[in-house]
């Protein structure tokens, strides 16, 4: 039997599938039998307080780490697998940028790791910079950037190679409301072009903008569905109330 063949359970329109994923660091259980699926072309939110295991889950999905138990499939490939990494765009929670280099040089560097170069690279830098409103600051060294600018540059880095899947860990932290809206509009736009987006957040009103989401607490999925569904089922008017009703509030 070929164990590498896609399992029949994986529907064609599933982009990310986590099955019974567990992960512990020492004795601390960070993820406890998490299962979820992200469909192609949707914005999927991972909602939960800090320390709930969101980042660990994201790291498992990107193949930076391996689960103790369970399996993760990304774009029909069992993770971790190096070849899939060129098809995803990843934005880490902390801005991983080279402070001495200018924004342009950072973009050039990361993009060249994906094989972008020459005129294509230059054009893409202009496009992406326009998108995150950094066109005027490309020549500045990143260490002179504000927190929000760094966040936007990190997003730009993730977008450079036109990935099929975007995995964004807390993308809007430290970004002002106006820009936050622009970024969400852009995510919306990307989705319309068929990009699948997995985004973690602990901001409830951002969760509303997702097509579907999973509420996570203490490494478990406590609720799963569209924002409307979750609010209706929990008889709540806001996501915040819904989260508390599902047991996401104080223990």
């Amino acid at each position: 039997m070929n164990l590498n063949a896609p399992s029949p359970i994986v529907a064609a329109d599933d982009c990310i599938e986590a099955v019974q994923v567990s992960k512990a660091f020492g004795k601390r259980i960070v993820l406890d039998q998490i299962s979820l699926t992200v469909k192609r072309g949707e914005i999927f939110g991972l909602l939960g307080p800090s320390g709930s295991g969101k980042t660990t889950l994201v790291r498992l999905i990107t193949g930076l780490d391996v689960p103790d138990n369970g399996s993760i499939t990304l774009l029909d490939v069992h993770m971790p697998k190096l070849s899939v990494l060129s098809r995803i765009g990843y934005m880490a929670q902390s801005d991983a940028l080279y402070g001495e280099l200018t924004a342009q040089e950072n973009l050039e560097f990361f993009s060249s790791l994906y094989g972008l170069r020459g005129a294509v690279l230059k054009k893409r830098i202009q496009e992406v910079a326009e998108l995150v409103k950094l066109s005027g600051d490309l020549k500045k060294p990143v260490q002179l950037y504000s927190g929000g600018m760094k966040r936007r540059l990190s997003l730009a880095v993730a977008l450079m190679h036109k990935p099929e899947v975007l995995i964004l860990d807390e993308p809007t932290v430290g970004i002002d409301p106006v820009l936050r809206k622009t970024i969400w509009d852009e995510l919306d736009h990307l989705r319309k072009n068929g990009v699948t987006i997995l985004v973690t957040t602990h901001v409830m009103d951002e969760a509303e903008k997702c097509d579907r989401l999973a509420m996570i607490r203490d490494g478990r999925v406590i609720a799963f569905g569209s924002p409307e569904q979750l609010k209706t089922e929990s008889h709540s008017s806001t996501m915040e109330d819904a989260f508390i009703t599902y047991g996401g509030g104080a223990a």
């Binding site: 990107t62 930076l64 060129s86 880490a92 991983a96 940028l97 402070g99 990361f110 790791l113 994906y114």
Partner: peptide
């Protein structure tokens, strides 16, 4: 420590 190594390893870089 700045997290760029993590970021590098999220690319297809071996």
């Amino acid at each position: 420590t700045t997290g760029t190594l993590q970021r590098l390893l999220a690319t297809p870089l071996r």
